[in-house]
């Protein structure tokens, strides 16, 4: 039997690596990948709790999370595409049109 704390620690570690990726990387698409990584870490803790609590609700919620992640990836990537057409760069520091 895998101890529940170890899986939760793995999930926390993956989440933190995702947070660091969002804060440190400057490429928009890599930042997007880090967000997917964080969503996966949360999914892992959902599965862990669903198993340790003998519940099925966590698995149903993961279904919803994955659908929302897919929708988010589609819309976000198309926004990145259309920003790239005007700014010709993927560096997030250059996306400063809304800054004053």
């Amino acid at each position: 039997m895998i101890p529940i704390e170890h899986i939760l620690l793995l999930s926390a570690l993956l989440f933190i690596i995702g947070v660091l990726g969002v804060m440190l990387r400057r490429n928009v698409i890599v930042i997007f990948m880090s967000i997917e990584l964080m969503l996966n870490a949360v999914n892992l803790s959902f599965v862990t709790f669903a198993k340790s609590l003998d519940s099925m609700t966590g698995v149903v919620f993961i279904f919803f999370i994955i659908v929302v992640a897919a929708a988010e990836a589609v819309v976000g990537l198309s926004i990145i595409l259309s920003i790239f057409r005007t700014r010709k760069t993927l560096n997030i520091d250059k996306f400063n049109l809304l800054k004053w």
Binding site: I29, A73, I80, L81, F84, L90, N91
Partner: peptide, 16 residues
């Protein structure tokens, strides 16, 4: 999808 977008967008700038 990510790989498609990465291949659509050439990111040559090294500033990142």
């Amino acid at each position: 999808l990510f790989l498609f977008v990465l291949m659509l967008l050439p990111s040559k700038d090294s500033e990142q």
